[in-house]
Design a protein around this nucleic acid. Sequence first.
DNA 1: GTTCGTGCAAAAACTTTGCATTATC
DNA 2: GATAATGCAAAGTTTTTGCACGAAC
Lengths: 164, 164
Amino acid sequence: MPSRKILQLPDEKTLASARKHFEVFLKKQELKMTSQRVEILQRVAGMDRHFNADEILEAFRRKKSKPSKATIYRTLNLLAECDILEEHNIKQESSVVYEFAWGRDHHDHMICLSCGTILEFVDEAIETRQDEVCEEKGFHPTFHSQKIYGICSVCWDEKGVRSV
Amino acid sequence: MPSRKILQLPDEKTLASARKHFEVFLKKQELKMTSQRVEILQRVAGMDRHFNADEILEAFRRKKSKPSKATIYRTLNLLAECDILEEHNIKQESSVVYEFAWGRDHHDHMICLSCGTILEFVDEAIETRQDEVCEEKGFHPTFHSQKIYGICSVCWDEKGVRSV
DNA sequence: GTTCGTGCAAAAACTTTGCATTATC
DNA sequence: GATAATGCAAAGTTTTTGCACGAAC
């Protein structure tokens, strides 16, 4: 049997849970569940990396009937609104970048300026200090975005990249 | 005498130093110092808050001869390239936001989702941990961007805002 | 059957670019 | 005097929107 993880297939349990959450979210606002919304949710759940609207459109390449670009944009906005997706604004990227966040733990990002690779990290000490700093300022945090830009180990060690 | 700080006037020493730096930067690439570039530098140095390209254009409102929009965009890019300005990608802002960074210490940001106010903060513990995390991953940081989104104390305490 | 969603094309918003003229070095 | 910068308008990108038709509840 293959030992390689097949990343294109979404975890069924996670997908089912995300779909349930999406249904409740839509119903609460008297919005409707459509075949396009289901299909887009399936595609974003199958993305193992960060992606943009165009890549979702591309994921429908082989299908005879595919959602329009407008519907994809509208649906990604809904999915971000109900926290199934996380939106990222990344320097050097002209489009909004999304990440499937349902059932995944919070994490921050390191972005390689040379190859564009996005590494994830979590650090409890930083999280704690952020909360303390907010407390000190009377600021009530909802979410945060921490991005460290630099050169990843592959570019630094193997390619000898020292700057961009 | 007025005790209120007049924020629109740039600090002369800082401006002179930034201009020197800009001149050296331009010369190194065989680019030229022009009257438009000088005038735009003066305007950005006089900005006490975060701003976008359009606000710089607006700062020339009363002048008879003003740089074109294209020149403003081109110059802001140059100023960011030589670290006189810092570029920010802020969620909910459709345009690139700049901050005059010359002679100012590094800091991170808290952004109020209700009123848009940007608060600055510095925390040595967080800075140190970031470096340690990078070290652990073999990542060589160049710069970072940390933004905490939430409700500021004014909106929370005075306006009773609890969510957006 | 009513209301909401979709697809299409057009618009919007921001930024970049090509080119002839003007300014800088 | 050679080269780069400007201004203008046009084009480029990404995302949003108006509207007639079709799908969902």
